[in-house]
């Protein structure tokens, strides 16, 4: 393809990315580096600040949500949201969770927190699906193959999208309004304490590649268009689409990072690490399902994780 076509594709995917994922890397990095002035995120570093964090979110969000019937559920989910960027005041359904600040045994707190994360993840799957549909040619693929590509791609995409929100000390959540420390996440009871640590390790290394939002958009499309997902019916058109996006990504990297010569190769290598992280993550969720009596998995996530790895 001509360079001009490849650049047009990059622009198109960047626009689709901005449309579907409002918390961009540029915005997240500005927040993390303290360049947003008065709007510094609220820091959650222990149980006490977790409770206060919810209040902080409630105070900020009530004016935005006067019209809404499900105040409390929305706010709880807003508190833990933001892994991967989210629409402020998203209108989608949640699990009927109770507020984190409600009294209850400490044990239940991790589960409630986990449920909020699930709701946010389900919403992110919807955003990722919309992004996928904007990839030229995706919607023309066999519908079964579209389902397969999403089933196997969305968790990888979710993990890549967490990276811009993270640094070595913690992660932004709740649309960048809250910073939750890595130490706090590590202090949760097992196995919750083990969930985020591999993502931090991956993200710190991934962030060293210093991709910008337009390169992130192309990389996400490359991940979605993986022709080696199990059970695909018609691999050829998927590989053709991926090849074009790969050309566009390679060109974009050359233009943006002229001195990082091996960047394209390094980025492609990350896809191997990513698959291992997803496999471990899914096994951890399956373990949770067995060991936690009160655990219920969001129907969309259940659908995705069933018979995955």
């Amino acid at each position: 393809p001509e360079a001009a076509d490849l650049r047009a594709l990059a622009r198109h995917l960047y626009e689709a990315y901005l449309k579907n994922f409002p918390l961009t890397k540029a915005k997240a990095r500005a927040i993390l580096s303290g360049k947003t002035g008065d709007n510094a995120p609220f820091v959650i570093h222990d149980m006490k600040s977790l409770m206060e964090g919810e209040q902080f979110i409630n105070c900020r969000q009530i004016p935005l949500k006067e019209h809404h019937h499900h105040h409390q559920q929305q706010q709880t989910s807003a508190l833990t949201a933001g892994l991967g960027g989210a629409h402020q005041g998203s209108e989608y359904g949640f699990l009927g969770m109770t507020s984190i600040s409600e009294e209850g045994p400490q044990d239940a707190l991790e589960l409630r927190f986990f449920h909020s994360c699930q709701s946010r993840s389900a919403e992110a799957v919807r955003e990722i699906t919309e992004f996928a549909k904007s990839i030229p040619g995706f919607s023309e693929l066999d519908l079964n193959d579209q389902v397969t590509l999403l089933k196997y791609g969305v968790i990888e995409v979710l993990i890549i999208m967490m990276a811009p929100l993270m640094n070595k000390d913690g992660t932004l959540i709740s649309y960048g309004q809250i910073f939750m420390t890595r130490e706090f996440l590590k202090s949760l009871r097992k196995p919750f304490s083990q969930m985020m640590e591999p993502k931090f390790e991956f993200s710190v290394k991934f962030n060293m590649l210093e991709l910008d939002d337009s390169e992130m958009a192309l990389f996400l499309a490359v991940i979605i268009l993986s022709g080696d997902r199990p059970g695909l019916l018609n691999v050829k058109p998927i590989e053709q689409l991926q090849e074009t996006v790969l050309h566009s990504l390679e060109l974009q990297l050359k233009l943006n990072h002229p001195i990082s010569l091996q960047l394209f190769a390094k980025l492609l290598q990350k896809m191997t690490d990513l698959r291992q992280i997803v496999t471990d993550h899914v096994h951890l969720i399956q373990l949770l399902k067995k060991t936690e009596v009160d655990m219920c998995l969001h129907p969309l996530l259940q659908e995705i994780m069933k018979d995955l790895y």
Partner: peptide
């Protein structure tokens, strides 16, 4: 496969209309 993934399928088929997750 579509039958086993009703919500994903629905998300793919519906355009931008909100789906009750």
């Amino acid at each position: 496969l579509k039958e086993k993934h009703k919500i994903l399928h629905q998300l793919l088929q519906n355009s931008t209309s909100p789906v009750d997750l």
